[in-house]
């Protein structure tokens, strides 16, 4: 049997039949520049800075994004808003996209949801310097892709309902159920160990 099979090359012919049938199946590729994938809302594309509805800058220059960035590609120069003491903003903001690893930590770190990632993934340029984003470029991107930026923040559960009040997007936020610690258990005061706390209480 085996000899007959190898003389008539049945196995090879079976393979060829399979390939022939495959020819008539529909294609599964995209004609990329003409047809594009739908990008999901949570997609981490190029970074952008957002503004409030009235056009003022969200960023308060706290440098938390700078601290959170694992690849050290953000540089914030913080300053007081001229004429408004104690109100701060980022006088300069630099983001080196060539070093960015698109982890999204900076957007999570931002307390005022000033940073959001867009769905722009075609970042190639002819001049490397064009990838050193400054404040102007980041706000520009934020204006162009405002809807994507908002969708990103919602998808990543970062909108607490106060950020986009007009759209009433607060419902999108996932809230954790309150923790029930049970009778007799008390939350540990920050900064003290349980033993230290008990010592403190017994002294009283």
């Amino acid at each position: 049997m085996g000899l007959i099979r190898s003389i008539f090359m049945t196995e090879l012919l079976m393979g060829m039949k399979l390939v022939f049938k495959q020819m008539f199946k529909p294609y599964c590729t995209l004609q990329y520049p003409h047809v594009r994938h739908d990008i999901p809302d949570g997609y981490r594309g190029l970074m952008s800075l957002l503004r409030y509805e009235d056009g003022s800058e969200r960023c308060v220059g706290c440098s938390l994004c700078e601290a959170a960035c694992p690849s050290n590609c953000i540089k914030v120069v913080s300053d007081e808003v001229p004429g408004q003491p104690l109100v701060r903003y980022a006088r300069e903001y630099y983001l080196d996209i060539t070093r960015c690893v698109f982890c999204g930590f900076c957007t999570e770190a931002c307390p005022v949801d000033a940073l959001a990632m867009t769905k722009v993934y075609e970042a190639s340029v002819f001049d490397r310097r064009d990838l050193m984003f400054d404040k102007r470029k980041l706000y520009e991107l934020g204006e162009q892709h405002l809807a994507d930026g908002k969708a990103y923040l919602i998808a990543h559960n970062m909108d607490d309902g106060t950020l986009f009040p007009k759209e009433g997007l607060g419902d999108n936020r996932y809230s954790f159920p309150p923790v029930d610690l049970g009778e007799g258990e008390r939350p540990v005061t920050v900064g003290l160990t349980r033993e230290a706390l008990e010592m403190e209480l017994s002294k009283q």
Binding site: Q22, M23, C28, Q31
Partner: peptide
Amino acid sequence: KVLSFMQDRL
């Protein structure tokens, strides 16, 4: 073309 069709591409 034929190879592409066999591999479900265009």
